[in-house]
Nucleic acid binder design. Structure first.
Lengths: 233, 233
DNA sequence: TTCGATTTGTTCGTATGTATT
DNA sequence: TAATACATACGAACAAATCGA
């Protein structure tokens, strides 16, 4: 029963019945609505809280999770200068283009070949040191109304923009890392490295709670300056 | 109360009152022993189950978790051949030495400089391809009776050996990744790479449930053949 | 094969504690 | 201070899995 209720609540969330940041009805009401006891309801909600979908606040209510800049930074930004504490990067945009998805992109994002996508290139600095060039690919269809002004005008992280403006939550990501020679002149120049220097290449696909792929991001990291941190639990 | 009981159970486990694989007393007995209701006890145990410390089996009992080879492989071995499924590696040992900890090693393992340690070098293959050279450092003090025969004679993963023979559970690990030029002749030869080829360098510190550092492992990965997978939730 | 004893899993209802407004 | 909402705790009943007689 708690599993059924959990799924029904998820469906409500997907259908946008309850909006981001909004409070759900209180536990007693919800239990009555679903025809179960409060204990069982709490179990269902408890799981969603653990997954980060809902947030419970004692004395206030249960809310649809709204992730902060800190959350996204802490969770998804895995780079830091060698041996130093993690810091917020500064972002410099190089291009924001409309084009069609190639094979790799359409495979990763689960869209058809040649679907319209946005292709974005950013250069990130930490303490004035260029640490990574990010190439971002997102499907146009998922982000109706998106344009360069909106993208550059965001007041927080990119994932926050997805969440707040488009209702899309990045819940998890899959990174594949390898070491490659930096043979691309443009990237080498951005990172202020000589051609042929080893760089960390990261291919990330980010997903929603429903495991729907949202973003393909390829990063080239200046490995002289920064390291990738991975915590395994 | 449930938090207090959880901590008391953890203490029992640390003190070895309940051994690996053993069953705990049943819920009713435990609740009575701790002077709490079964519901509260279940909450305490439930958290430990979630953390992977205990395992509950309906109809049988609650057991001290004993992690399988599959668990350790799935959780802690993050390498796979490019674009292929994860496979078990074959391990080839190059040396097993006794020596004293240097600065980096003593810092990482939280032991004093020049403490006795074991230093081990392995070469791992996947499908006949050499994928990584691992340098492993563990404190002698944590592994009384450890020697080359025991280490090489293990019938499962290294972490399983720590668990089954020494009662030490690797619960989480911290990896720091960077791309470097492979300038070490020996490592290059092991990986069948030319000197100067970019390789993925991973520095891992592994910890017990109590966040005590157990192992420092430095890996050099043949990035032509293999990739590092990282899942972020 | 069946049956009963044991053990964890689920659900219910209620009471009390604690944080917020 | 009172009302509201989540947090914790208790106890009981029944379901489901396991194991041995």
């Amino acid at each position: 029963m708690w599993l059924k209720v959990k799924n029904r609540i998820q469906d409500f969330l997907n259908d946008g019945i309850w909006q981001v940041g909004e409070a759900l009805p209180n536990e007693a009401e919800l239990a009555k609505y679903f025809g179960i006891s409060m204990g069982t309801l709490r179990r269902a909600i408890g799981e969603l809280v653990q997954e980060g979908v809902l947030v419970r606040k004692q004395g206030r209510g249960t809310f649809v999770a709204e992730h902060s800049k800190e959350h996204f930074m802490y969770h998804f930004f895995r780079l830091a200068l060698r041996g130093k504490e993690k810091k917020y990067p500064l972002v410099n945009n190089y291009y924001f283009q409309s084009r069609k998805a190639n094979q790799q992109e359409s495979d990763a994002l689960d869209i058809s070949l040649n679907s319209p996508v946005f292709a974005i290139q950013n250069l990130l600095f930490i303490e004035e040191t260029p640490v990574t060039v990010d190439n971002i690919i997102i499907s146009k269809e998922l982000f109706p109304g998106m344009n360069k002004e909106i993208f550059l005008g965001r007041d927080s992280t990119i994932y926050n923009l997805y969440q707040n403006r488009f209702g899309i939550f990045i819940a998890n990501a899959n990174d594949r890392l390898s070491a490659v020679r930096c043979d691309n002149r443009e990237i080498a120049a951005h990172l202020e490295l000589e051609l042929g220097t080893p760089v960390l290449k990261i291919v990330r696909v980010s997903y929603t709670y429903q495991s729907k792929p949202v973003e393909l991001r390829t990063s080239w990291v200046n490995s002289n300056a920064a390291e990738y941190y991975s915590n395994i639990f």
